[in-house]
Every structure is written in C-alpha cells, then in structure tokens.
Amino acid sequence: MRRMNNGSTNILEIENLTTTLRIPGGKVSVVEGISFNVKAGEKLVIVGESGSGKSMTINSILQMVPDSLIDSYKGIIKIDGENILEMSKRKFKDIRGKKISLVAQNAMTSLDPSYKIGKQVMEIYRHNHKKASKEEAKKETLILLDKMGIKNPEHVFHSYPHELSGGLRQRVVIAMALTGNPKLIIADEPTSALDPTLQLQILDLLNEINQKFGTSILMITHDFGVVSYFADRVIVMYAGEILEMGTVDEVINYPLHPYTKGLLKCIPDLSWLDKEDKIEKRKLSSISGEVPNLAKKLTGCRFAPRVSDIPEDYHESSPKMHKITDTHWVRCTCYQYYLKDSIAGLEGVK
C-alpha cells in the first residue's frame, strides 16, 4: 500500500475524448472533445447536472458503456501512460482493479446480496493477486476492512450485505476498490445516496485514503458543497463539454463561466443565520431553462440559450477553452464580459 507520490506525473490523461452512442434513429455524442489530466495524488472532482456527460466520461474511462450502445470512442485515454482505447479487452481487465477501480454510487449494485461480505472482498482480492492463498486473502481482507474504519471487521466479514447499514456497505465497497492497490479510484457520486452525516464520514475516509496511500481520486458529483470540502481541482461539465476547469479556489471564488456562476448562486446562503436579526436572507437564484437534449444536434455555444444578460456580440460560434491561469481554463468568450465586473477577483487569481 505504499506508493511514490511525485506530484508531476499524470495517472490519467484524456485528450480530445469524444464518446458517441447509437440511439434509435441516429448517433449522439454524449461526451465531446474533452481533455484533462489527473495527477498522482490528486483529488479531481467533475461537477455537473444530469445530462452533463459526467457519468459517460467515467464510463468511457472504465470502458463500461454497454457494447450495444457504444458507437465509437475518439481521442486518447491514457492510464499510467498506456492508451486503453488501443488495448485488448483482456489487458484492460488487468488494469482494472490494479491501476484504476470504481466506487459506485449505490453500494448494493457492487455487492451480491446472496454472498457474505468476506467472500466477496476476498474474491476481488484474489482476482487482483493471483498468487495469494486463501488464508492470505482473508488476512488482507480483514486488514483492509479495518483500515476502512470498520470497527468490527471480523463481524462484517461474516455478514450479508443487507445486514449492514448504508454507511458500512459503502465502506466495504471502497475496501473492494482498494484490494488491488490502484493508483486511481473513480468514485461515482459515492455519497449522494447517503444521509448528510454519513456523507461526511465517507468523504473523510476517501480523503484519508488519498493522504495515506497517495491514491488519486476522480469523483463525480452534482453538489458544490462536496466539491469545496473534498476537491483539489474541479471540472464543470455541461451538455458533454467541459465549460470550466481550475483549482477549487479559482472555480468557487472566481468563477468565470456564466453556468458556473449560476450554479454557485443556486446554493442557499446560510451566512444570514449568523448575522443580526435585521439582515434578510438572500433570495435563491436559479438558472432558467433546462439542460439541452443531446439527441438534437447542438451547434455553437451549448449554454448560450440559457444566458440572457450578455450582449450578443460576446457569444462565440463554437467556443474554445481559454487559458486564464496555468490551472484555470474556461470555454466561453463571455468571460471577458464578466471580467469587467470582477476585476478584483482577477487580481486575486493572479
């Protein structure tokens, strides 16, 4: 479980990935031309609403899109320097578990209800360590469960999934993801089905794994609260594209894309509760309209239909990623318009 943590290498490199699905009556690109990296030891969070393409992004990385749906992948997905799109299925199977692994949203989908926890974790362990004996696997499994903050690993080992609470089940699933000492854990909304207090515990656990073992984590979520608590860097996705990318500080405190700004304003502000009685609560703002249907051909800026406060001439026909700082990128020409009223913010970035 020890690993070198030299911050500069990339565990995951995605270049110009386009994932196209077959749908009745045509094709639809659910992920279009996205590029990003996950560095060793980094916590990267992709945030987006449903239909943003965030799930399809991780499904592409894990090659989990059903064959009946997939039309083509274009671009490069490099895991630890190897392009998985040019790899045999067999070889990829080896990488899965040993280099990357998944923590699913609903623990019950990863656990078989008819087998005991111990048997299931051991099975995964022995898949990743072919030479391990049964005794070894059991020992390692118990150690792993213990590391997951499970108080009574022996008891959990002999339990069936339904006998455990939601929080414990999620810990078991994380343990399963860790059996092969992966360099990258992909977490698919690991906490959105949990109560808020449990959410916090699981996030803390993932954080601890990241700190202790240097495992990189790529998480997707729809909750900016999770982003600010957990992430090092953030990617904001919308309609299959990356709209903004940057460190947590940059994106939350100095957002440039109107969509990011809008999303942030949708989060209730609690600061009025601490203040004197006279201060009124800020009205919750919202983004008008809905996420576009990707089945219809989209042209130009995908977010433009939901923007009303920007002069027409700021819109670019098909916006490219603009570099603001080394880490902060935005796919929008409108940011120049916004920069006018957040000069102070820009100075903060510089």
């Binding site: 609403e49 449903s50 729809h222 909750d223 900016f224 809008g262 999303l263 949708c266 989060i267 009205k283 919750l284 703002s285 919202s286 983004i287 008008s288 809905e290 996420v291």
Partner: peptide, 11 residues
C-alpha cells in the same frame, strides 16, 4: 432534482 432546477422549484 438537479441543482439549478432545485432552486427553480423552491422559488
């Protein structure tokens, strides 16, 4: 519901 839709409904 999604974040942006959530606030629409609350409003």
């Amino acid at each position: 519901l999604d974040v942006s839709v959530k606030s629409q409904i609350i409003n």
